[in-house]
């Protein structure tokens, strides 16, 4: 057995390490990411009657309710986009971001038992959680496309075909931002459990502060509120997504920069702090 064992040399130092990303190790455990993702996918809908149908049913019903409440009753102007379609898009992308964030924020607390017994890069769990949110999004997306085709044939919407290439980036950024914030929160929850309570509430507030149930154009002319809205890092993905899919949306350079900077910062800070907590959390949880 003359394997080059030194490839696997690991140095553990009691002194505080400089911050590290450890992404190489995560890559070595890529099979684990796939397995975790599969496991969650198969286990979530075990012993449910409708099974994976829930994946489509929930966002569909939510969008119907949104359309009735916000467009029908509150009379929000969706710029001529059919209510159902508008809310399917908004809700779909928001859910990707929100569930990536919310589910990740529980990583350490939920997996404490496994983490106490065996080492593997904890980030694999976070990434697989995001992948699960992505997969669920893709299923919803397929439904959106089907409904979109119907309205397209009816001539009621016109997607921005020229921007189609941006679509994967918009989706990835929404997922990655959720991941970054999620791991950040999960690292902090190991010490301050209050944050757990705050997450659900915070995400809900954030949703209303983002053009999800209303288009950004609704705020035009409202001055300060509109300007603040541009800085919201979820504004650009939301507007861009609807622009691409439905042809209606407003993209401001400030929003785009804010989104890119915020996503990068959240991911970097999230992973760095996550890696630090990963080494000590077992003593504090």
């Amino acid at each position: 057995m003359s394997r080059t064992e030194d490839n696997y040399h690991v140095h553990i130092d009691g002194k505080e390490n400089p911050l590290q990303l450890n992404l190489k190790e995560v890559w070595r455990y890529r099979d684990l990411i796939v397995l975790f993702t599969k496991r969650t996918l198969t286990l979530t809908y075990k012993q449910t009657i409708l099974g994976p149908a829930w994946l489509v049913l929930t966002p569909f019903l939510t969008s119907v309710v949104y359309a009735v409440v916000f467009k029908g009753i509150a009379g929000i102007n969706t710029n001529g986009i059919p209510g159902l379609l508008f809310y399917l898009c908004s809700n779909g992308l928001w859910t990707l971001f929100a569930s990536s964030l919310k589910r990740n924020s529980a990583t350490f607390v939920v997996n404490a038992r496994v983490f106490a017994k065996v080492y593997f890069p904890r980030l694999t769990i976070s990434i697989s959680t995001m992948l699960n949110a992505l997969i669920e999004f893709l299923i919803v997306f397929a439904m959106i496309v089907i409904i979109l085709i119907y309205y397209l044939l009816a001539g009621e919407v016109e997607p921005a075909w020229k921007l189609l290439w941006l679509l994967p980036f918009v989706v990835l950024i929404a997922g990655a931002m959720g991941l970054g914030l999620g791991v950040l929160v999960s690292s902090l929850t190991t010490k301050y459990r209050d944050l757990r309570m705050l997450v659900d509430f915070g995400v809900m507030l954030w949703m209303f502060a983002t053009p999800v149930v209303y288009p950004l154009s609704q705020l035009e002319g409202s001055g300060i509120l509109y300007k603040v809205m541009l800085w919201n890092p979820m504004t650009a993905p939301m507007e861009l997504f609807r622009k691409i899919m439905l042809g209606q949306g407003y993209i401001d350079p400030i929003s785009v920069i804010s989104t890119l900077v915020f996503t990068a910062a959240a991911l970097l800070a999230g992973i760095l702090i996550f890696n630090r907590v990963e080494r000590t959390f077992i003593d504090t949880v």
Binding site: E5, D6, Y8, H9, V10, H11, I12, D13, G14, K15, R39, L43, V114, F115, A116, K117, V118, Y119, R279, T280, I282, D283
Partner: peptide
């Protein structure tokens, strides 16, 4: 097995480590 980190001193491992602190960890 890198489940916890030391407060001082160093460990060098020249190989992959399998830790059986418990059997069937992560079984579902």
């Amino acid at each position: 097995s890198r489940v916890a980190s030391p407060s001082g001193g160093t460990i060098d491992l020249y190989g992959r480590v399998t830790s059986m602190l418990e059997v069937g960890t992560g079984f579902n």
